[in-house]
Each structure stands twice: as C-alpha cells, then as structure tokens.
Design a protein around this nucleic acid. Structure first.
Lengths: 220, 220
DNA sequence: TTCACTTCTTAAGATATCTTAATTTTTATA
DNA sequence: TATAAAAATTAAGATATCTTAAGAAGTGAA
C-alpha cells in the first residue's frame, strides 16, 4: 500500500490505477494457476487447501517464450516442470546431428529429464517451448522437503510416476508393433488437434520416421 | 509342537527328526529371503526391523518352476512380484502370432504388468519363469494398506517406480539410436553372463530382431 | 509486396532387415 | 544311447525405410 501511494504521487492517478489493475489481474491469474494445480492434484490424492497453499508457495511460475529452452542438454535438471498451458518438446541430438523428439507435453503434464533429475547426471536431452508456455517449477530440493512435511505428496508422485511408466510402455508397444504408417495414423486418430500445432517434420521425428518418408506415406 | 509329537508317534524318531530339520531349514530360508528384501528395501529407504517384519508378513513366497507362469495374458494382474532368485520374462503375442519379449527380470527386480496392476485391465502380456524362480508376492490390496500404515513404503515405491521409468527410457534410447547389430553388442557388453542363460531366439525377440537376422549378424 | 527462411514434397538409388524354407546343431527325454 | 523336439544357421528374394539432392510451397519480417 505504501508502494501504491508512492506511485500515485509520482505517476498520477491514471497510470497508478492501470498498474493496480495489472497487479490485480496477475493475482487472479495466480489464483487460476493454483486452482488448476489443485484440481490436478486432487484428481489423485485428497489435499486440503492448506496443503495446497504450502505446496503452491514452493512453486515458481514462469512464462517461456516460443523456441526458448526450459532445460538444455548438458545441464543438470534440478526441477520438475508442470505445464499450465502451451506446448513443449523434449529432444536430443543423435550421432548424425539430427534432432530426435522423445516427448511432447501439454497442459497438466509434468516434464523433466527423469534421469538427470533423479541421478544428477548432465541431461542428454533438452526441453524447449514450441509455443508460449506457462509452467510451474518445483525444485528437487523443495520437493524433497515437501515429501517430508506432506507425505501425501509422495503418494501423488508415486501415482504420477506410475502413470508416466504406463504411458511410456504403451508408447513402446505402439512403436514395436506398428510400422511407420500405422504409427502415424494412430497418432492422428488419437490427437487430431495436436497435429496442427506441430510442424510435420517434428511429428516425423517423434514417430521415428524421416520427414521425406512421412511425406511419402501421406500420399497414399 | 502337538503336531511334532504326533509325528514322532506315527513315524518314529528318525523320520520326524528329518521333518523337523526340513522345517528348520525352511525357516532359515525364510530368514534369508527376509534379509534379502530388507537389504534391498534399505538401499532406498531406512526401514526398522519392525517395519520390515510387518511388510514381510504380508508377502507370500512362491517357487515357480521353469516354464510355469506367474501371470497369463488376459488375467488381471493383482500383485507385484519381487524376484528372490531365478529369471523370468515378460512377453506378449503380436498380431502375427510371434512372442515379443518386453522385459527380462532377475533377482532383486520387481516384475508386474504395470498397466494391468494399476488400472485393473486384463493384462496384455504374460510373465513366465525361464528358470526355477523364487518370488515374493505383494497383492495390490495389501500394498495399499501398507502404504497407509507405513508411509515410507510409499516412498520406496515412488523411488522404485522412478528407477523403472529411467530404465525404460534408457532402453528406448538404445532402441532408437542403435541398429540391430549395435543393440546386440551393447547387450552382450552390459550383461555377458545373462546371455548364457537365455536362448538366442529370446534375445533376438527382446532386441526386436528376427532370430534369422541375429544369426546373420553374429557371423560378422 | 518482396525476400529470406523454414517446411514440405518428389524421386531414384541404397541399405537394413524381414520372409520363407531348408539344413544343421544342440538339448531333452525315453 | 537313440530319438524326438527345440534352437540355430544359411541363403535367396522381398520390402520397408533411409539417403541424397533438388525443387515447390508456405511463412514471417522488412
């Protein structure tokens, strides 16, 4: 409030009012994010508002511009990232210099390099925003403190990790049972809207097909 | 003790003594298994002897003969299986009728069909012993009760699941970065002793190579 | 609107891997 | 030990997918 009055003095009423409204909007946007993560958390485990408050207070929110990086290859991945909205990809560079996409992640997904996050190895992959993306960041350090103060959170991550594992195994089943063409049609059937947000050569990379061959497959 | 005296009467001393020693040996074998799982558990989380006792009391031990099944396709996988010793494989039958091996598991590994176990779907894969195998079984029901009475156990499985996910992702990296030949040499370099315990056509299946082609690769 | 850059398509030749089927080798069982 | 069953090898032809290289189409910024 001191700040606000000070601003009124040096900026005049109109500008200060604008600033106030902006701050107000940010606050409600914060609340929206908190609501979103609460809803997500409570899908799996029953948290109280107080617990959500405590957890939320440890999260850092950040907006990543299109093409900017959340994590770069070689860095140690010290956080787990929850996507509020937007779209990111996780990829690495193979020995021939080609980008290989291992994962896309949308709103209400966690994304991290699990191996780097857990074992503190330099990450072999990067995470990059494909659209302007809002994320909530939980550092490993804070997460481990929270596991102790709120054991239910450990349950949440036990469940979330199980689901990640299941998703991973399902993806493998698709890859190993299907040829290139079937993988592509399976993807467009399951995520028709998602396809439109990503350039085709990235789809090809994710499906482990060369862009040229995917182009050929589409002809038929 | 009543049973023992009864046996003495009908069988005579020598036979009863033999039976007693056998029971005695089984007891110590039980203790060995308990020691093994304690050691394994304490690698990740610090459990007290009392907690281990409580957990162990919910485990069922079982010996699976070579070629027998722990889980069959179509069943709902109601337990998680900890391998004391031996060797099992997890596999499914693809649309051409070929067995596809997705995982081998050795001592100190958990094996289950995660999707079936978590979501209570009929399992798409089977788990079969390739050698005489001793396992400890924890049912989902008991596990969930234990998560509540011993929250540390939830931590254990959070960590174990993270490690499974990491292992899964590593396997994928190998599959997608390497050609058939390199996958094979990578496997024999990492698990030279393991190769000798499994027929080559199963190695081929695990590596997603036809047995004929693997045979050809080995020539060079 | 134009220019530069990114993305997509096309096509020809190359290659890894599979399929089929027959033969040999190894292992298990009577 | 003999025999049957299981596993591994060989080879020829087939196919899916990649590589390279070039051009076409689309997109964003000046």
């Amino acid at each position: 409030m001191v700040t606000l009055i000070f601003l009124l003095k040096i900026l005049g009423h109109k500008t200060a009012l604008f600033l106030y409204l902006t701050i107000g909007n940010n606050k409600s946007h914060e609340n929206l994010m908190k609501e979103q993560i609460k809803k997500y958390f409570c899908r799996y485990v029953d948290f109280s508002d107080i617990e959500i408050d405590e957890i939320y207070s440890k999260l850092i929110s950040k907006t990543i511009q299109k093409k900017d990086y959340i994590l770069r290859e070689g860095q140690i991945c010290k956080s787990n990232y929850f996507i509020i909205n937007g779209l990111v990809r996780s990829f690495y560079i193979d020995d021939k210099g080609n980008e290989k996409i291992t994962q896309f992640a949308l709103e209400n997904w966690w994304v991290t390099n699990m191996e780097s996050f857990i074992k503190k190895n330099p990450s072999l992959s990067s995470i990059q925003a494909l659209e302007k993306t809002e994320i909530l960041i939980i550092s490993k350090e804070e997460l481990e403190k929270l596991y102790i103060s709120i054991p239910k959170l450990e349950r949440l991550f036990r469940i979330v990790t199980e689901n990640m594992l299941i998703a991973n195994q399902r993806k493998n089943d698709v890859y190993f049972q299907m040829n290139s063409k079937d993988r592509y049609t399976s993807l467009i059937n399951h995520f028709p809207n998602f396809i439109q947000r990503v350039p085709q050569y990235m789809i090809a990379s994710y499906l482990e097909i060369t862009p040229e061959y995917l182009s050929e497959l589409k002809k038929n």
